[in-house]
Simulated scan of single mutants.
Amino acid sequence: MVSQIPKETCPRPFLKWAGGKGRLITQYIDYFPKHYKTYYEPFLGGGAIFFYLHPPAARLTDINAELITTYRCVRDHVEELISLLQAHQNKHNKDYYYDVRAYPEGNDIEKAARLIYLNKTCFNGLYRVNSQGKFNVPVGRYKNPSICAENILRTASAALSTSEIEQADFTNILNYAQSGDDFVYFDPPYYPLSETSYFTAYSSYSFGENKQLQLRDIFAELAQRGVKVMLSNSDCEFIRKLYSDFNIHTISATRSINSNAKKRGKITEVLVTSY
């Protein structure tokens, strides 16, 4: 079931992430199931929903290997990670950023510190890779970026301590979630509202229409098993038709990533539930 913890000690995301759900949680609260034992999130990203719910048991997965390595290091080696981030913070400048961006080598903790450092100092906190799978976001214009948020990292580490964290494709969920004791939240790359809004570059792994159809089939299979399933996606005819057999709720959101500032602003999204 959903745990209740004092607000001041609530864990929260340690990464900025495109499509993060932190600002939408107040609209989601009424739709979270009241009782479940194990929480599953196959598109982990920044993990805002996981950190808000703070479930007693969870299996967290993502296709992005660097992201999963980072979560594991926050869970298992947070003090060593903090030390490396403090070093990055002391050295940070534009030239240092591009030097770090150019060289992804190192052990897992060094790779995790690199990802967090780049995430906190790159333009808009945007995770994007090129066709070779290399991070290619330019440096952001921050006067004093918060690179090493020690309290956030330690609180996140404690929240992750009872979680399984694995690199996996979303289809892997069928091997685990089986019954009404399980709650699955899907936050996939959204179906594009236009050609210019087609952003799926969280990894070199694309998420086109066929993947959206496959995800719907998995959603339906889990629902048939009695699993509590919730999904976020674009508010468009394609998605509404795809999930027409389920409960569809309209959520008010803010589009914050667009090359044209005038095209940022309020939009609607859908929240689909099986229950």
Rank of each mutant, 00 (worst) to 15 (best):
Y176Q: 13
E237T: 13
G226Q: 00
K211Y: 05
Q214G: 14
T196V: 12
E195S: 14
N151P: 08
V139Y: 05
E209M: 11
Q214K: 12
R216M: 15
E164M: 10
I218F: 06
E221W: 10
Q214S: 15
K241V: 09
C236M: 05
Y190S: 05
E164F: 13
Y142G: 02
I165A: 04
A168R: 08
F186H: 03
D235F: 07
S204C: 09
S163L: 07
I152C: 09
V229F: 00
F183I: 03
P189T: 04
E209L: 13
Q212D: 05
L153E: 03
Y185R: 04
D217R: 05
E209S: 11
E195A: 15
E221L: 14
L213V: 15
K143D: 15
K211D: 07
G208I: 00
Y198I: 04
I165F: 08
Y176A: 13
E164T: 14
A158H: 11
F238W: 11
R240G: 08
I218R: 00
L222P: 01
T196A: 15
P138E: 09
Y190T: 09
S163K: 02
Y198N: 12
S234T: 12
G208E: 01
L153A: 04
S157E: 04
I165N: 02
D235A: 12
Y191F: 12
Q214E: 13
C148M: 08
Q178H: 15
S161M: 10
R240S: 08
R240W: 06
Y198T: 05
T200E: 13
C148Q: 03
F170G: 03
S194D: 14
